[in-house]
Amino acid sequence: MTWMKATGLVLAALLGLAGCGSDPALKENPFLLGARVLREGSGKAAKGAAPGPALTRAAIDQVQGPLLLATLESRGLSGALVPIGQNGADTTWASADEVAVIMRGGVVRGTRGLGEDLMSAAIPDESALRRDGGSGQRAYYHLDGDDQTVRRSYSCTIHEQGAASLVIVERPYRARRFEERCRGDDGGFTNEYWFLADGRLIQSRQWIGPSVGFLRLQRLKP
C-alpha cells in the first residue's frame, strides 16, 4: 500500500525515531569501563563549562595509567581520555562515551565519533612544534557528509609566544606557548601548544576539521 502510506517517515522524524525491538547488535561496548569513574565528574554535556566541577585531583589520582582531558570547544563537551590501543607510534585514546582520538605523541592525527571526523593526517613530530621558526606540511583526510574522503593540505610555521602560566585541575604549570600557523587552499587555522621545561607537552589546542573545530587537550596524568 505504498500509494497511500508514507510509512513511518514523518513519524520516525517527529517521534525521535521511536520504535523498539530486538536488535542483534549489542548496545554497550564495555571496553572502556575503566574510565567510567570520570564520566560522572567530567560529564559529556557540561556545556560551556569544562571541566565539570567534580573533576578533582583526588579523582584523577584514583585512576591507573595515563589520562588526558579533551574539550571540544564548538560543542562545549569535555571528557577524560584513556589509551586503549597502540599501533607503532600512534596511540588511540578514548572517552567513556567511546569517542576516540588518535595521537602520535601529543599531535592529533585522527578522531572517531565527532561527526565529520578527521580520518587520518600527515602530521609533524611533536618535537618539531617547539622549534621557533620551523615549518612543515600537514595533510588532513576528512569524511564529509556524503561519506567521501576530502583531502586538505596546509603549510605551517611555528612561532614561539613566550612563557605562560596555566592551571590544570588544581595543578599549576609554567610553560612555553607555541603557535603553529597553518594556511591552505580553504583558509587556515592556528594550533597552540604549551610545553614544559622538560619538553613535555602539557596542553594543546588543535584544529580537527571544518565542522568539528578545535579540540583542547590537557595532560592530567602522568
Binding site: 597502540q86 562515551d97 567511546e98 572517531r112 565519533g113 561527526g115 557528509g145 565542522s211
Partner: peptide, 21 residues
C-alpha cells in the same frame, strides 16, 4: 537541505576497537 550535508556535520556513532598489531 542537501543530502550531502548531514545534520550536525556527520556520523557521531561510537568508535570501535583499534587495531592490535
Amino acid at each position: 537541505l542537501n543530502p550531502k550535508d548531514r545534520f550536525g556535520g556527520g556520523d557521531r556513532s561510537k568508535a570501535t576497537y583499534p587495531v592490535e598489531p
